[in-house]
Design a protein around this nucleic acid. Structure first.
Length: 547
RNA sequence: GCGCUCAUAGCUCAGAUGGAUAGAGCAACGGACUUCUAAUCCGUAGGUCGCAGGUUCGAAUCCUGCUGAGCGCGCCA
Protein backbone atom coordinates (compact mmCIF):
# COMPACT_ATOMS: atom_id res chain seq x y z
CA UNK A 1 0.00 0.00 0.00
CA UNK A 2 1.54 3.24 -1.17
CA UNK A 3 0.30 5.36 1.72
CA UNK A 4 1.77 3.01 4.31
CA UNK A 5 5.09 3.03 2.47
CA UNK A 6 5.12 6.82 2.61
CA UNK A 7 4.32 6.69 6.31
CA UNK A 8 7.23 4.33 6.88
CA UNK A 9 9.56 6.62 4.99
CA UNK A 10 8.44 9.62 7.03
CA UNK A 11 8.85 7.67 10.24
CA UNK A 12 12.37 6.67 9.23
CA UNK A 13 13.24 10.33 8.72
CA UNK A 14 11.70 11.24 12.07
CA UNK A 15 13.76 8.59 13.84
CA UNK A 16 16.91 9.57 11.97
CA UNK A 17 16.49 13.16 13.16
CA UNK A 18 15.72 12.09 16.71
CA UNK A 19 12.22 13.61 16.57
CA UNK A 20 10.34 10.49 17.71
CA UNK A 21 8.10 10.95 20.74
CA UNK A 22 4.99 9.57 22.37
CA UNK A 23 2.91 11.61 19.95
CA UNK A 24 4.54 9.99 16.95
CA UNK A 25 5.99 6.53 17.46
CA UNK A 26 4.32 4.31 14.85
CA UNK A 27 3.26 4.65 11.25
CA UNK A 28 -0.42 5.07 12.08
CA UNK A 29 0.46 8.13 14.17
CA UNK A 30 1.49 9.82 10.98
CA UNK A 31 -1.35 11.67 9.33
CA UNK A 32 -1.40 11.57 5.59
CA UNK A 33 -3.88 13.01 3.18
CA UNK A 34 -4.48 14.06 -0.37
CA UNK A 35 -4.11 17.82 -0.66
CA UNK A 36 -7.09 19.65 -2.06
CA UNK A 37 -4.91 21.58 -4.44
CA UNK A 38 -3.17 19.46 -7.03
CA UNK A 39 -0.07 21.67 -7.19
CA UNK A 40 0.79 20.58 -3.68
CA UNK A 41 1.52 17.06 -4.89
CA UNK A 42 0.05 13.61 -4.53
CA UNK A 43 0.13 13.36 -0.76
CA UNK A 44 0.81 15.62 2.14
CA UNK A 45 1.36 15.24 5.83
CA UNK A 46 0.99 17.72 8.62
CA UNK A 47 3.04 15.62 11.01
CA UNK A 48 5.27 18.64 11.80
CA UNK A 49 2.32 20.04 13.76
CA UNK A 50 2.12 16.84 15.82
CA UNK A 51 5.85 17.02 16.52
CA UNK A 52 6.02 20.74 17.25
CA UNK A 53 4.89 20.50 20.86
CA UNK A 54 7.27 17.76 21.96
CA UNK A 55 10.41 19.01 20.25
CA UNK A 56 9.66 22.68 20.73
CA UNK A 57 10.44 23.95 17.27
CA UNK A 58 8.24 25.81 14.81
CA UNK A 59 6.33 23.41 12.53
CA UNK A 60 7.82 24.90 9.42
CA UNK A 61 11.39 24.32 10.62
CA UNK A 62 10.49 20.71 11.33
CA UNK A 63 8.98 20.37 7.86
CA UNK A 64 12.19 21.69 6.31
CA UNK A 65 14.37 19.32 8.30
CA UNK A 66 12.15 16.32 7.55
CA UNK A 67 11.87 17.09 3.86
CA UNK A 68 15.66 17.13 3.64
CA UNK A 69 15.98 13.72 5.31
CA UNK A 70 13.37 11.81 3.35
CA UNK A 71 14.52 8.82 1.30
CA UNK A 72 13.83 10.06 -2.22
CA UNK A 73 13.74 6.76 -4.13
CA UNK A 74 9.94 6.88 -4.62
CA UNK A 75 9.56 10.61 -5.01
CA UNK A 76 10.04 13.18 -7.64
CA UNK A 77 9.64 16.02 -5.15
CA UNK A 78 9.36 16.38 -1.39
CA UNK A 79 8.78 19.93 -0.28
CA UNK A 80 8.12 21.70 3.00
CA UNK A 81 5.27 24.20 2.94
CA UNK A 82 4.13 26.87 5.37
CA UNK A 83 2.87 26.77 8.00
CA UNK A 84 3.98 23.16 8.50
CA UNK A 85 3.16 20.71 5.77
CA UNK A 86 5.33 18.35 3.80
CA UNK A 87 4.18 17.70 0.26
CA UNK A 88 5.07 14.58 -1.68
CA UNK A 89 5.03 14.06 -5.41
CA UNK A 90 5.54 10.47 -6.50
CA UNK A 91 7.73 9.44 -9.41
CA UNK A 92 5.70 8.13 -12.35
CA UNK A 93 7.37 4.74 -11.88
CA UNK A 94 5.99 4.47 -8.34
CA UNK A 95 2.51 5.07 -9.70
CA UNK A 96 2.94 2.74 -12.64
CA UNK A 97 3.83 -0.08 -10.25
CA UNK A 98 0.33 0.17 -8.83
CA UNK A 99 -1.08 -1.21 -12.08
CA UNK A 100 1.07 -4.29 -11.71
CA UNK A 101 0.14 -4.63 -8.07
CA UNK A 102 -3.55 -4.54 -8.95
CA UNK A 103 -3.14 -7.03 -11.77
CA UNK A 104 -1.20 -9.42 -9.55
CA UNK A 105 -3.81 -9.21 -6.81
CA UNK A 106 -7.07 -9.05 -8.72
CA UNK A 107 -9.13 -10.54 -5.95
CA UNK A 108 -7.36 -9.07 -3.00
CA UNK A 109 -6.27 -5.57 -3.94
CA UNK A 110 -7.64 -3.27 -1.27
CA UNK A 111 -7.42 -5.84 1.49
CA UNK A 112 -5.06 -5.22 4.36
CA UNK A 113 -4.15 -6.92 7.60
CA UNK A 114 -4.81 -3.86 9.71
CA UNK A 115 -7.32 -5.80 11.81
CA UNK A 116 -4.87 -8.64 12.34
CA UNK A 117 -7.66 -11.24 12.44
CA UNK A 118 -9.30 -9.78 15.55
CA UNK A 119 -12.85 -10.99 16.07
CA UNK A 120 -15.54 -8.39 15.51
CA UNK A 121 -19.24 -8.93 15.74
CA UNK A 122 -21.62 -6.65 13.92
CA UNK A 123 -25.19 -6.99 15.10
CA UNK A 124 -27.80 -5.15 13.09
CA UNK A 125 -31.40 -4.99 11.91
CA UNK A 126 -32.63 -7.20 14.80
CA UNK A 127 -36.21 -6.28 14.00
CA UNK A 128 -39.05 -7.85 15.94
CA UNK A 129 -40.45 -10.90 14.16
CA UNK A 130 -43.87 -9.34 14.03
CA UNK A 131 -44.01 -7.72 10.62
CA UNK A 132 -42.25 -7.01 7.36
CA UNK A 133 -39.02 -5.05 7.38
CA UNK A 134 -39.43 -1.33 6.82
CA UNK A 135 -37.31 1.03 4.81
CA UNK A 136 -35.83 2.18 8.11
CA UNK A 137 -34.58 -1.36 8.69
CA UNK A 138 -33.31 -1.25 5.14
CA UNK A 139 -31.07 1.69 5.88
CA UNK A 140 -29.64 -0.11 8.89
CA UNK A 141 -29.28 -3.35 6.94
CA UNK A 142 -27.28 -1.72 4.17
CA UNK A 143 -25.16 0.27 6.57
CA UNK A 144 -24.34 -2.72 8.78
CA UNK A 145 -23.72 -5.04 5.89
CA UNK A 146 -21.34 -2.62 4.21
CA UNK A 147 -19.45 -1.90 7.41
CA UNK A 148 -19.05 -5.66 7.84
CA UNK A 149 -17.69 -6.01 4.30
CA UNK A 150 -15.22 -3.18 4.90
CA UNK A 151 -14.04 -4.59 8.21
CA UNK A 152 -13.51 -7.93 6.56
CA UNK A 153 -11.37 -6.25 3.91
CA UNK A 154 -9.42 -4.42 6.60
CA UNK A 155 -8.38 -7.76 8.06
CA UNK A 156 -10.90 -8.35 10.85
CA UNK A 157 -12.69 -11.66 11.39
CA UNK A 158 -16.24 -10.41 11.06
CA UNK A 159 -19.40 -12.09 12.27
CA UNK A 160 -22.80 -10.73 11.25
CA UNK A 161 -25.68 -11.40 13.57
CA UNK A 162 -29.40 -10.72 13.66
CA UNK A 163 -30.88 -10.79 17.16
CA UNK A 164 -34.42 -12.11 17.16
CA UNK A 165 -36.66 -10.77 19.90
CA UNK A 166 -38.84 -13.83 20.04
CA UNK A 167 -39.75 -13.55 23.69
CA UNK A 168 -42.01 -11.12 25.46
CA UNK A 169 -45.37 -9.55 25.02
CA UNK A 170 -45.13 -8.76 21.37
CA UNK A 171 -44.98 -12.47 20.66
CA UNK A 172 -48.13 -13.16 22.67
CA UNK A 173 -49.68 -10.37 20.72
CA UNK A 174 -48.54 -11.88 17.46
CA UNK A 175 -49.87 -15.31 18.37
CA UNK A 176 -53.24 -13.98 19.43
CA UNK A 177 -53.52 -11.91 16.26
CA UNK A 178 -52.75 -14.92 14.10
CA UNK A 179 -55.21 -17.02 16.05
CA UNK A 180 -57.90 -14.42 15.42
CA UNK A 181 -57.09 -14.55 11.73
CA UNK A 182 -57.42 -18.32 11.82
CA UNK A 183 -60.82 -18.04 13.46
CA UNK A 184 -61.77 -15.46 10.89
CA UNK A 185 -60.86 -17.89 8.11
CA UNK A 186 -63.11 -20.45 9.75
CA UNK A 187 -65.98 -18.01 9.63
CA UNK A 188 -66.00 -16.77 13.21
CA UNK A 189 -66.79 -13.08 13.60
CA UNK A 190 -63.67 -11.12 14.53
CA UNK A 191 -63.50 -7.64 15.92
CA UNK A 192 -60.62 -5.91 14.08
CA UNK A 193 -59.99 -3.84 17.20
CA UNK A 194 -58.81 -6.99 18.96
CA UNK A 195 -56.02 -7.52 16.47
CA UNK A 196 -52.74 -6.46 18.02
CA UNK A 197 -51.13 -6.62 14.61
CA UNK A 198 -53.57 -5.56 11.96
CA UNK A 199 -51.41 -6.18 8.92
CA UNK A 200 -52.96 -8.45 6.33
CA UNK A 201 -49.74 -10.41 5.94
CA UNK A 202 -50.86 -12.40 8.97
CA UNK A 203 -53.81 -13.80 7.02
CA UNK A 204 -51.42 -15.74 4.80
CA UNK A 205 -49.66 -17.12 7.85
CA UNK A 206 -53.01 -18.05 9.40
CA UNK A 207 -53.98 -19.92 6.27
CA UNK A 208 -50.73 -21.87 6.16
CA UNK A 209 -50.84 -22.70 9.84
CA UNK A 210 -54.39 -23.89 9.50
CA UNK A 211 -53.40 -26.12 6.60
CA UNK A 212 -50.43 -27.51 8.44
CA UNK A 213 -52.24 -28.26 11.68
CA UNK A 214 -55.89 -28.67 10.71
CA UNK A 215 -58.83 -27.39 12.71
CA UNK A 216 -57.86 -29.65 15.58
CA UNK A 217 -55.36 -26.94 16.48
CA UNK A 218 -58.13 -24.89 18.02
CA UNK A 219 -59.19 -27.75 20.28
CA UNK A 220 -55.85 -27.79 22.08
CA UNK A 221 -55.58 -25.91 25.32
CA UNK A 222 -54.66 -22.29 25.08
CA UNK A 223 -51.06 -22.56 26.13
CA UNK A 224 -50.21 -25.32 23.69
CA UNK A 225 -52.22 -23.71 20.91
CA UNK A 226 -50.53 -20.36 21.34
CA UNK A 227 -47.10 -21.95 21.50
CA UNK A 228 -47.65 -23.72 18.21
CA UNK A 229 -49.03 -20.63 16.55
CA UNK A 230 -46.27 -18.44 17.92
CA UNK A 231 -43.41 -20.69 16.87
CA UNK A 232 -44.90 -21.26 13.48
CA UNK A 233 -45.58 -17.57 12.89
CA UNK A 234 -42.10 -16.61 14.00
CA UNK A 235 -40.39 -19.04 11.71
CA UNK A 236 -42.48 -17.91 8.76
CA UNK A 237 -41.73 -14.30 9.63
CA UNK A 238 -38.00 -14.95 9.91
CA UNK A 239 -38.01 -16.76 6.59
CA UNK A 240 -39.76 -13.79 4.99
CA UNK A 241 -37.39 -11.30 6.57
CA UNK A 242 -34.35 -13.34 5.53
CA UNK A 243 -35.70 -13.54 2.02
CA UNK A 244 -36.25 -9.80 1.84
CA UNK A 245 -32.75 -9.14 3.13
CA UNK A 246 -31.27 -11.60 0.68
CA UNK A 247 -32.84 -9.71 -2.20
CA UNK A 248 -31.21 -6.67 -0.70
CA UNK A 249 -27.82 -8.35 -0.68
CA UNK A 250 -27.71 -8.78 3.08
CA UNK A 251 -27.06 -12.14 4.70
CA UNK A 252 -26.29 -13.02 8.29
CA UNK A 253 -23.97 -15.59 9.79
CA UNK A 254 -26.38 -16.23 12.63
CA UNK A 255 -29.92 -15.44 13.65
CA UNK A 256 -29.67 -15.45 17.41
CA UNK A 257 -32.92 -16.27 19.20
CA UNK A 258 -33.66 -14.46 22.43
CA UNK A 259 -35.64 -17.52 23.49
CA UNK A 260 -32.46 -19.54 23.67
CA UNK A 261 -31.12 -17.15 26.27
CA UNK A 262 -34.13 -17.79 28.50
CA UNK A 263 -34.26 -21.52 27.85
CA UNK A 264 -30.61 -22.07 28.59
CA UNK A 265 -30.83 -20.16 31.84
CA UNK A 266 -28.32 -17.53 30.82
CA UNK A 267 -30.73 -14.77 31.70
CA UNK A 268 -31.25 -15.99 35.27
CA UNK A 269 -27.57 -16.72 35.58
CA UNK A 270 -26.73 -13.19 34.56
CA UNK A 271 -29.01 -11.82 37.25
CA UNK A 272 -27.30 -14.02 39.83
CA UNK A 273 -23.88 -12.85 38.74
CA UNK A 274 -24.99 -9.27 39.01
CA UNK A 275 -26.31 -9.89 42.50
CA UNK A 276 -23.07 -11.60 43.54
CA UNK A 277 -21.10 -8.66 42.29
CA UNK A 278 -23.33 -6.32 44.25
CA UNK A 279 -24.62 -4.71 41.09
CA UNK A 280 -28.26 -5.59 41.68
CA UNK A 281 -30.63 -5.12 44.59
CA UNK A 282 -34.26 -5.84 45.42
CA UNK A 283 -36.80 -3.17 46.07
CA UNK A 284 -40.62 -3.16 45.86
CA UNK A 285 -40.44 -6.82 44.87
CA UNK A 286 -38.40 -6.08 41.77
CA UNK A 287 -34.71 -6.53 41.03
CA UNK A 288 -32.80 -3.42 40.06
CA UNK A 289 -29.46 -2.71 38.47
CA UNK A 290 -27.65 0.10 40.28
CA UNK A 291 -26.65 1.62 36.98
CA UNK A 292 -26.34 5.12 38.47
CA UNK A 293 -23.00 3.92 39.81
CA UNK A 294 -21.97 3.66 36.16
CA UNK A 295 -23.04 7.04 34.87
CA UNK A 296 -26.57 6.10 33.93
CA UNK A 297 -29.18 8.63 34.96
CA UNK A 298 -31.22 6.22 37.03
CA UNK A 299 -31.36 2.63 38.19
CA UNK A 300 -33.07 0.15 35.90
CA UNK A 301 -35.36 -2.77 36.53
CA UNK A 302 -33.95 -6.17 35.64
CA UNK A 303 -36.73 -8.40 36.86
CA UNK A 304 -40.23 -7.17 37.42
CA UNK A 305 -42.12 -7.81 40.63
CA UNK A 306 -44.32 -10.24 38.73
CA UNK A 307 -41.22 -12.36 38.17
CA UNK A 308 -40.57 -11.84 34.47
CA UNK A 309 -37.21 -10.54 33.37
CA UNK A 310 -37.15 -7.27 31.47
CA UNK A 311 -35.91 -6.94 27.95
CA UNK A 312 -32.95 -5.10 29.40
CA UNK A 313 -31.84 -8.09 31.50
CA UNK A 314 -32.10 -10.35 28.46
CA UNK A 315 -30.02 -7.83 26.57
CA UNK A 316 -27.35 -7.81 29.24
CA UNK A 317 -27.29 -11.60 29.14
CA UNK A 318 -27.03 -11.43 25.38
CA UNK A 319 -24.05 -9.10 25.51
CA UNK A 320 -22.36 -11.26 28.11
CA UNK A 321 -22.84 -14.14 25.72
CA UNK A 322 -21.26 -12.12 22.92
CA UNK A 323 -18.14 -11.57 24.98
CA UNK A 324 -18.08 -15.24 25.95
CA UNK A 325 -18.06 -16.11 22.28
CA UNK A 326 -14.73 -14.30 22.10
CA UNK A 327 -15.55 -11.13 20.20
CA UNK A 328 -13.03 -8.43 20.95
CA UNK A 329 -15.04 -5.66 19.40
CA UNK A 330 -18.80 -5.65 19.48
CA UNK A 331 -20.65 -3.31 17.18
CA UNK A 332 -24.37 -2.84 17.74
CA UNK A 333 -26.21 -0.87 15.11
CA UNK A 334 -29.45 0.58 16.40
CA UNK A 335 -32.19 2.83 15.15
CA UNK A 336 -32.41 6.37 16.49
CA UNK A 337 -35.27 5.43 18.81
CA UNK A 338 -32.86 3.36 20.89
CA UNK A 339 -30.31 6.05 21.61
CA UNK A 340 -31.55 6.35 25.17
CA UNK A 341 -30.36 2.80 25.87
CA UNK A 342 -26.74 3.32 25.02
CA UNK A 343 -25.68 4.56 28.45
CA UNK A 344 -27.34 1.76 30.35
CA UNK A 345 -26.05 -0.93 28.00
CA UNK A 346 -22.51 0.33 28.32
CA UNK A 347 -22.98 0.66 32.06
CA UNK A 348 -24.05 -2.98 32.25
CA UNK A 349 -21.18 -4.22 30.14
CA UNK A 350 -18.72 -2.21 32.20
CA UNK A 351 -20.23 -3.41 35.46
CA UNK A 352 -19.79 -7.01 34.40
CA UNK A 353 -16.11 -6.35 33.96
CA UNK A 354 -15.88 -5.92 30.21
CA UNK A 355 -14.31 -2.87 28.64
CA UNK A 356 -17.13 -0.52 27.67
CA UNK A 357 -14.92 0.86 24.92
CA UNK A 358 -15.06 -2.52 23.19
CA UNK A 359 -18.81 -2.11 22.77
CA UNK A 360 -19.57 0.33 20.00
CA UNK A 361 -23.17 1.31 19.64
CA UNK A 362 -23.81 3.10 16.39
CA UNK A 363 -27.06 4.92 15.86
CA UNK A 364 -28.52 5.15 12.38
CA UNK A 365 -30.96 7.99 11.96
CA UNK A 366 -34.51 7.44 10.83
CA UNK A 367 -35.81 7.70 7.32
CA UNK A 368 -38.68 10.09 6.85
CA UNK A 369 -40.97 10.02 3.88
CA UNK A 370 -42.12 12.35 1.23
CA UNK A 371 -44.36 11.59 -1.71
CA UNK A 372 -45.28 8.19 -0.39
CA UNK A 373 -48.70 6.73 -0.49
CA UNK A 374 -49.23 5.07 2.84
CA UNK A 375 -50.16 1.48 2.29
CA UNK A 376 -53.42 0.49 3.90
CA UNK A 377 -52.36 -3.12 3.79
CA UNK A 378 -49.53 -2.57 6.21
CA UNK A 379 -50.42 0.57 8.04
CA UNK A 380 -47.91 3.36 7.86
CA UNK A 381 -45.01 1.23 6.77
CA UNK A 382 -43.04 1.36 3.59
CA UNK A 383 -41.28 -1.97 3.32
CA UNK A 384 -37.93 -2.91 1.86
CA UNK A 385 -39.81 -5.07 -0.62
CA UNK A 386 -41.83 -2.04 -1.77
CA UNK A 387 -38.65 -0.09 -2.20
CA UNK A 388 -36.90 -2.81 -4.20
CA UNK A 389 -39.96 -3.17 -6.42
CA UNK A 390 -39.93 0.55 -7.00
CA UNK A 391 -36.27 1.33 -7.70
CA UNK A 392 -34.33 -1.93 -7.59
CA UNK A 393 -31.85 -3.17 -5.00
CA UNK A 394 -28.82 -1.41 -6.49
CA UNK A 395 -30.36 2.04 -6.45
CA UNK A 396 -31.87 1.50 -3.01
CA UNK A 397 -28.57 0.37 -1.48
CA UNK A 398 -26.70 3.17 -3.13
CA UNK A 399 -29.22 5.76 -2.03
CA UNK A 400 -28.75 4.82 1.62
CA UNK A 401 -24.99 4.59 1.38
CA UNK A 402 -24.55 8.08 -0.07
CA UNK A 403 -25.91 9.48 3.19
CA UNK A 404 -23.84 9.21 6.32
CA UNK A 405 -25.54 7.39 9.12
CA UNK A 406 -26.04 10.54 11.18
CA UNK A 407 -28.02 12.38 8.55
CA UNK A 408 -31.74 12.65 9.13
CA UNK A 409 -32.62 11.79 5.64
CA UNK A 410 -35.85 12.49 3.95
CA UNK A 411 -36.83 9.81 1.53
CA UNK A 412 -38.50 11.08 -1.56
CA UNK A 413 -39.73 7.99 -3.33
CA UNK A 414 -40.55 9.95 -6.44
CA UNK A 415 -37.06 11.39 -6.67
CA UNK A 416 -35.35 8.12 -5.84
CA UNK A 417 -37.03 6.51 -8.80
CA UNK A 418 -35.89 9.19 -11.16
CA UNK A 419 -32.70 9.15 -13.09
CA UNK A 420 -31.41 12.32 -11.52
CA UNK A 421 -31.24 10.93 -8.04
CA UNK A 422 -29.71 7.68 -9.16
CA UNK A 423 -27.25 9.32 -11.49
CA UNK A 424 -24.19 9.01 -9.27
CA UNK A 425 -24.67 5.25 -9.27
CA UNK A 426 -25.02 5.08 -13.06
CA UNK A 427 -21.94 7.23 -13.35
CA UNK A 428 -19.91 4.54 -11.58
CA UNK A 429 -21.52 1.63 -13.36
CA UNK A 430 -21.12 3.34 -16.68
CA UNK A 431 -17.38 3.73 -16.14
CA UNK A 432 -17.15 0.00 -15.46
CA UNK A 433 -19.22 -0.93 -18.51
CA UNK A 434 -17.20 1.43 -20.66
CA UNK A 435 -13.97 -0.26 -19.63
CA UNK A 436 -15.37 -3.68 -20.35
CA UNK A 437 -16.45 -2.67 -23.80
CA UNK A 438 -13.15 -0.90 -24.43
CA UNK A 439 -11.15 -4.03 -23.67
CA UNK A 440 -13.45 -6.18 -25.79
CA UNK A 441 -13.12 -3.79 -28.70
CA UNK A 442 -9.34 -3.71 -28.36
CA UNK A 443 -9.28 -7.50 -28.42
CA UNK A 444 -10.87 -7.41 -31.87
CA UNK A 445 -7.88 -5.40 -33.07
CA UNK A 446 -5.48 -7.77 -31.35
CA UNK A 447 -4.59 -5.30 -28.66
CA UNK A 448 -4.38 -6.50 -25.08
CA UNK A 449 -3.39 -5.01 -21.74
CA UNK A 450 0.38 -5.14 -21.25
CA UNK A 451 2.01 -5.00 -17.86
CA UNK A 452 5.69 -4.72 -18.77
CA UNK A 453 8.08 -1.87 -19.37
CA UNK A 454 5.59 -0.12 -21.67
CA UNK A 455 3.80 1.10 -18.52
CA UNK A 456 6.51 3.76 -18.35
CA UNK A 457 4.76 5.42 -21.29
CA UNK A 458 1.98 6.46 -18.93
CA UNK A 459 3.12 9.95 -18.06
CA UNK A 460 0.25 12.18 -19.11
CA UNK A 461 -1.35 14.21 -16.32
CA UNK A 462 -4.62 12.30 -16.82
CA UNK A 463 -2.85 8.97 -16.52
CA UNK A 464 -0.84 9.98 -13.48
CA UNK A 465 -3.97 11.25 -11.76
CA UNK A 466 -5.85 8.03 -12.49
CA UNK A 467 -2.98 5.89 -11.20
CA UNK A 468 -2.76 8.01 -8.08
CA UNK A 469 -6.45 7.37 -7.48
CA UNK A 470 -5.95 3.63 -7.91
CA UNK A 471 -3.09 3.74 -5.43
CA UNK A 472 -5.42 5.21 -2.81
CA UNK A 473 -7.94 2.35 -2.85
CA UNK A 474 -6.51 0.23 0.00
CA UNK A 475 -6.08 3.30 2.14
CA UNK A 476 -9.66 4.41 1.46
CA UNK A 477 -11.00 0.97 2.37
CA UNK A 478 -9.00 0.95 5.54
CA UNK A 479 -10.07 4.39 6.66
CA UNK A 480 -13.71 3.72 5.76
CA UNK A 481 -13.52 0.56 7.87
CA UNK A 482 -11.84 2.33 10.77
CA UNK A 483 -14.35 5.15 10.84
CA UNK A 484 -17.30 2.86 9.99
CA UNK A 485 -18.21 5.25 7.20
CA UNK A 486 -19.12 3.48 3.95
CA UNK A 487 -20.00 6.86 2.45
CA UNK A 488 -16.28 7.44 1.93
CA UNK A 489 -16.15 4.61 -0.57
CA UNK A 490 -18.84 6.33 -2.60
CA UNK A 491 -16.89 9.58 -2.66
CA UNK A 492 -13.77 7.69 -3.59
CA UNK A 493 -15.37 5.70 -6.41
CA UNK A 494 -16.91 8.87 -7.82
CA UNK A 495 -13.49 10.46 -7.97
CA UNK A 496 -12.03 7.33 -9.54
CA UNK A 497 -14.78 7.11 -12.16
CA UNK A 498 -14.40 10.83 -12.84
CA UNK A 499 -10.66 10.47 -13.40
CA UNK A 500 -11.27 7.54 -15.70
CA UNK A 501 -13.89 9.36 -17.76
CA UNK A 502 -11.55 12.32 -18.13
CA UNK A 503 -8.66 10.06 -19.14
CA UNK A 504 -10.86 8.26 -21.64
CA UNK A 505 -12.11 11.49 -23.09
CA UNK A 506 -8.72 13.12 -23.56
CA UNK A 507 -6.57 10.18 -24.58
CA UNK A 508 -6.96 7.57 -27.25
CA UNK A 509 -6.67 4.04 -25.85
CA UNK A 510 -7.04 1.85 -28.92
CA UNK A 511 -4.58 2.82 -31.60
CA UNK A 512 -3.07 -0.08 -33.60
CA UNK A 513 -0.23 2.13 -34.84
CA UNK A 514 0.97 2.54 -31.24
CA UNK A 515 0.66 -0.98 -29.83
CA UNK A 516 2.84 -0.37 -26.77
CA UNK A 517 0.97 2.75 -25.73
CA UNK A 518 -2.31 0.93 -26.32
CA UNK A 519 -1.16 -1.99 -24.23
CA UNK A 520 -0.18 0.30 -21.38
CA UNK A 521 -3.41 2.28 -21.50
CA UNK A 522 -5.42 -0.92 -21.68
CA UNK A 523 -3.57 -2.13 -18.59
CA UNK A 524 -4.44 1.09 -16.82
CA UNK A 525 -8.08 0.76 -17.91
CA UNK A 526 -8.22 -2.82 -16.80
CA UNK A 527 -6.79 -1.97 -13.39
CA UNK A 528 -9.38 0.77 -13.07
CA UNK A 529 -12.12 -1.67 -14.01
CA UNK A 530 -11.11 -4.14 -11.37
CA UNK A 531 -10.89 -1.51 -8.65
CA UNK A 532 -14.32 -0.18 -9.65
CA UNK A 533 -15.74 -3.69 -9.54
CA UNK A 534 -14.21 -4.35 -6.14
CA UNK A 535 -15.42 -1.02 -4.82
CA UNK A 536 -18.96 -1.59 -6.05
CA UNK A 537 -18.83 -5.05 -4.54
CA UNK A 538 -18.11 -3.54 -1.13
CA UNK A 539 -21.24 -1.47 -1.56
CA UNK A 540 -23.19 -4.56 -2.57
CA UNK A 541 -23.99 -2.98 -5.90
CA UNK A 542 -23.59 -4.70 -9.26
CA UNK A 543 -20.87 -3.79 -11.74
CA UNK A 544 -22.52 -4.36 -15.13
CA UNK A 545 -20.41 -5.19 -18.17
CA UNK A 546 -22.70 -3.29 -20.47
CA UNK A 547 -25.33 -0.62 -20.08
C1' G B 1 -38.25 19.96 31.78
C1' C B 2 -33.80 16.65 30.80
C1' G B 3 -30.97 13.88 27.13
C1' C B 4 -29.11 12.01 22.07
C1' U B 5 -28.70 13.49 16.86
C1' C B 6 -28.87 16.99 12.99
C1' A B 7 -28.57 22.29 10.49
C1' U B 8 -23.01 23.40 4.55
C1' A B 9 -24.97 26.20 -2.88
C1' G B 10 -32.02 26.63 -5.42
C1' C B 11 -32.46 20.74 -4.34
C1' U B 12 -30.00 16.02 -2.41
C1' C B 13 -25.63 15.50 0.13
C1' A B 14 -19.79 14.99 0.94
C1' G B 15 -16.02 17.49 3.77
C1' A B 16 -9.98 12.25 6.76
C1' U B 17 -7.15 13.30 14.64
C1' G B 18 -8.83 21.02 14.01
C1' G B 19 -4.99 22.36 8.55
C1' A B 20 -3.51 25.24 2.84
C1' U B 21 -8.31 28.74 -1.79
C1' A B 22 -15.31 24.80 1.69
C1' G B 23 -16.52 20.27 -2.73
C1' A B 24 -19.75 16.72 -5.84
C1' G B 25 -24.29 15.35 -8.25
C1' C B 26 -29.02 17.34 -9.78
C1' A B 27 -31.34 21.86 -11.55
C1' A B 28 -29.64 26.69 -14.63
C1' C B 29 -26.41 28.73 -18.48
C1' G B 30 -22.38 28.15 -22.55
C1' G B 31 -19.34 24.77 -25.34
C1' A B 32 -17.37 19.45 -27.23
C1' C B 33 -19.37 13.35 -30.95
C1' U B 34 -18.48 11.35 -39.39
C1' U B 35 -13.20 8.11 -34.77
C1' C B 36 -12.63 3.31 -28.35
C1' U B 37 -20.38 3.64 -25.04
C1' A B 38 -22.29 11.72 -25.08
C1' A B 39 -25.63 7.65 -19.02
C1' U B 40 -19.41 11.20 -21.06
C1' C B 41 -16.10 15.56 -21.13
C1' C B 42 -14.78 21.08 -20.64
C1' G B 43 -16.46 25.74 -18.78
C1' U B 44 -19.88 29.70 -16.24
C1' A B 45 -22.86 30.93 -12.22
C1' G B 46 -24.37 29.70 -7.37
C1' G B 47 -21.93 30.09 0.11
C1' U B 48 -22.08 35.15 6.21
C1' C B 49 -20.94 26.56 6.64
C1' G B 50 -28.53 28.13 11.29
C1' C B 51 -27.38 32.65 14.89
C1' A B 52 -24.00 34.74 18.84
C1' G B 53 -19.77 34.20 21.67
C1' G B 54 -15.26 31.30 23.16
C1' U B 55 -10.70 28.05 22.83
C1' U B 56 -5.56 28.74 19.24
C1' C B 57 -0.69 29.67 15.03
C1' G B 58 -5.29 27.97 12.50
C1' A B 59 -12.53 26.27 13.38
C1' A B 60 -17.70 23.87 8.81
C1' U B 61 -15.05 20.53 12.44
C1' C B 62 -13.81 21.46 19.53
C1' C B 63 -16.57 24.28 23.91
C1' U B 64 -20.88 27.46 25.76
C1' G B 65 -25.55 29.79 24.85
C1' C B 66 -29.68 30.51 21.50
C1' U B 67 -33.06 29.11 17.30
C1' G B 68 -35.24 25.26 14.41
C1' A B 69 -35.99 19.84 13.12
C1' G B 70 -36.01 14.34 14.27
C1' C B 71 -35.95 10.94 18.27
C1' G B 72 -35.93 9.35 23.37
C1' C B 73 -36.88 9.80 28.66
C1' G B 74 -42.19 3.05 31.81
C1' C B 75 -41.74 -2.69 36.85
C1' C B 76 -43.10 -1.45 27.56
C1' A B 77 -40.70 -4.43 23.95
Amino acid sequence: MVTDKIREIILDAIIKLGFASDAVSGIYDIPIETPKVREFGHYSSNVPFSLAASIKKPPYDIAVALAASIDMSMFEKVEPARPGFINFTLKPAALQDVIIEINDNKNSYGRSDYGNGRKVQVEFVSANPTGPLSVGHGRIAVYGDTVARLLDAAGFAVHKEFYVNDAGNQINNLASSVELRIRELLGEPVDPEQLGYKGEYLIAYAREILEENGQALLDKDEQERRAIIAESSISKMLADQANTLKHFGVEFDTWFRERELHKSGIVEKTLEIMKEKGLAYEEDGAHWFSSTDFEDEKDRVLKKSCGTPTYFLADIAYHRNKYERGFETIIDIWGADHHGYIERMKAAVGALGFDPASLEILIVQFVRFKNVKMSKRLGNIVTIDDLIDEVGADVARFFFLTRSRDSHLEFDLKLAGEKSEANPLFYLQYAHARIHSLIAKAEEKNLRPMFGSELSLLTDQRELQLMKQLADFPWEIQSAAKSREPVRIISYLSRLAGDFHAFYHDLRVISPEEPLMSGARLALSKATGSVLARGLDFLGVSAPESM
